[in-house]
Computed example of a mutant assay.
Amino acid sequence: MSTTNTRTRILEVATELVAGSPDGDISTRAVCEAAQVGAPALYRHFGDKEGLLSAVVDHGFERYLATKRERDESTDPVEDLRRGWDSHVEFAVRNPNLYRLMNSPAMRTPPAAALESHRILTRDLERAAAQGRIRVAPELAAQMIMSANVGVALMLVARPATFDDADMSRRVRDAVHASILTPDAAPVEPGVAEPGAAEVPSAAARLSALLREAQGPGLSTAEAALMKEWLDRVANARPGE
């Protein structure tokens, strides 16, 4: 068996064992026996059990991420955010053991799949910010949405008997989005100011996103970084601060 085939075989067997495990946990011994390889081969390809499990997560999550990579971005980033939340939850419910593993504290190094998913979310928020449609900086908004999205998905997977309201995910999604997005704001035309002190955070988030897209015209690298820091601080400030 070639080196590539050995690695693929180990990965496929481990993925099957994770999916069929009562708690999502597997032993390297069981993987080696099922794949008919010795322990040295497993450790040579994956380093240790954590490395193997991280590869299993990336392998299983690949199909989900492929749909996100290939999708056509709509002209409405807010609708893309809604669809992104729903597809995230749907994936978790369809792959409960894989999803629990992906978010397990035992995974000391975040799987590459998780990091890519976060980058895709942040990109959608940057598009929304450029249209003046979010209240805080995209990076903070991404953290807020992802933490809530993962929390809902984990509860649906881990406690289905308790969290049995089919509309619960949508309700949480809309509540979180309401705290981040401007209220059904239409895209703001360039050069048109948004009146009112309450719109200052949204304007700051939008200007930060536009400067990032334009690579900080007229500013040095240090000046652009400082400007972004100031704008993000304004965008992320709580009311009254």
Rank of each mutant, 00 (worst) to 15 (best):
M227R: 09
R71G: 07
D80P: 01
L65Q: 12
R83Q: 10
L207E: 05
V31N: 00
R7N: 01
D164H: 14
S21Y: 07
A34D: 02
R119T: 03
R123Q: 10
R233S: 11
D184N: 15
E50H: 14
A198C: 04
E62Q: 13
T75E: 14
V152A: 02
S147T: 15
R233Y: 05
A129C: 11
P110G: 08
G218E: 07
Y99F: 15
E12I: 12
T4A: 14
S202F: 05
E223I: 04
G20R: 14
M146R: 14
G196H: 07
A142L: 06
I120C: 00
F163Y: 15
L207Y: 05
L154I: 07
V192R: 15
D58E: 03
L231V: 04
A225L: 09
Q215H: 14
K68Y: 09
L231I: 07
V31Y: 00
I10S: 00
W85F: 11
G47C: 10
S117M: 00
P190W: 06
L231W: 03
A30R: 10
A186C: 01
S54R: 15
Q131W: 08
G84N: 11
H88R: 09
R127E: 03
E73P: 09
E12M: 02
R7P: 00
L52S: 09
G151I: 14
F46A: 02
K49H: 03
P105Y: 05
T67Q: 14
H59G: 02
A113G: 09
R108H: 13
A39Q: 13
D124T: 09
D72K: 13
V37H: 06
A141D: 03
S104C: 12
I26H: 02
A224G: 04
A203G: 11
R9S: 13
R123H: 09
Y64L: 04
S179L: 14
T15G: 04
A225G: 07
G191Q: 08
A203T: 15
P160F: 04
E50V: 10
S87I: 02
C32I: 10
T15P: 00
D80W: 00
P217C: 11
A153D: 01
V152D: 00
L210C: 12
S2C: 08
Q215M: 04
V93W: 09
S117F: 03
A153S: 15
K228P: 00
V172W: 00
V18H: 00
V157D: 02
W230F: 12
A106Q: 12
E50G: 09
L17M: 07
A153E: 05
H59L: 03
D167L: 06
H118N: 08
S117I: 00
P190N: 09
A161C: 07
M107I: 13
A106V: 15
A186Y: 01
